[in-house]
Amino acid sequence: MSIKGDIQEAFFIKRLNRFVAKILVNNKIEFAHVPNTGRMKELLIKDRKVLVRKVEDKNRKTKYDLLMVFYKDTLVAIDSRLPNKILYKAFYNKQLPYFKDYVEVKKEINFGKSRFDIGLVNRKNIVLIEAKCVTLVENNIAKFPDAPTERGTKHIKEIIKASSEGFGTGIFFIIQRNDAKFFSPNWELDSKFSEALKEANDRGVLIKAITCNINKEKMSLNEEIPIILEQ
């Protein structure tokens, strides 16, 4: 998937709130939209080099989007909107070996009180897919979430319910970096989410974790990695 727009190098200064960061770009202090509500404390550190996209929109308060962070030798994409897009495209182009009998791919499917990112429609049923953005890697283990998420736990419980009612279901953790060897729910940070994910697996929900290859011009799915669900 192409990363379009005027991409520039900058330096991170400070996160002002969940959505706005102060940056130094072209030797000038500017403000950037942060398209991810996660904490990302290990990534967003003062003076760290980042990639931003300049946005020409007079109605916006920020002139840039903060897209990627250089972490040691790894480029990390932080935009939490990307997993939906890259997963939708992969299913649309029949590039993934899961749920092969679908005939249509839809965006944003409602079920119960939740909205799921992707729906795969076949002749008999519909498969509900939830995509999660993962940026945290510790000791080669990708972890989600990096902040407690009641909404994420709610979505998992809804997808368990959908599975029990006969829907196909899947949760895909898209790891927006290429240095992870395993994936695990973040038990220390959010035990409720982790328990719910383990239950989903036990109840037959397909759970996958896939790393990505990233450069300043594009992001692509790389490889599926093993999942460790036990605490």
Rank of each mutant, 00 (worst) to 15 (best):
M68G: 01
V69M: 06
K85T: 15
K61A: 03
N213E: 01
T211C: 09
Y92E: 10
T153K: 15
E224D: 04
I210T: 05
L120T: 06
E42A: 04
I156M: 08
V103Q: 08
I141F: 13
I78W: 03
Q176F: 06
I126M: 11
F99M: 05
N122G: 12
L16W: 04
R151D: 03
D57L: 11
N125R: 09
E217P: 05
D146P: 08
N27M: 11
K124M: 08
W187I: 06
I156H: 02
S2G: 14
Q95N: 12
Q176V: 03
K89A: 13
V55R: 06
L87M: 15
D73S: 13
L221A: 00
R18E: 14
N178K: 07
F111I: 04
F12K: 15
R81A: 12
F182K: 00
Q95K: 14
K107F: 04
R115Y: 07
G119V: 14
L75Q: 09
T149A: 07
F172A: 03
N213A: 11
N140R: 07
I214G: 08
A162Y: 01
F116G: 10
E138C: 06
V121L: 15
D146N: 05
N178V: 02
R60T: 06
F183G: 01
A209H: 01
I23M: 03
I160M: 09
D202G: 07
E9L: 15
L96F: 15
D57E: 05
N17A: 15
K218Q: 08
C212G: 05
A90M: 08
A180K: 03
K181A: 08
S194P: 06
D117Y: 12
L43G: 10
L120I: 08
E195H: 12
K72N: 14
R48A: 00
K14G: 01
P145A: 11
I126H: 06
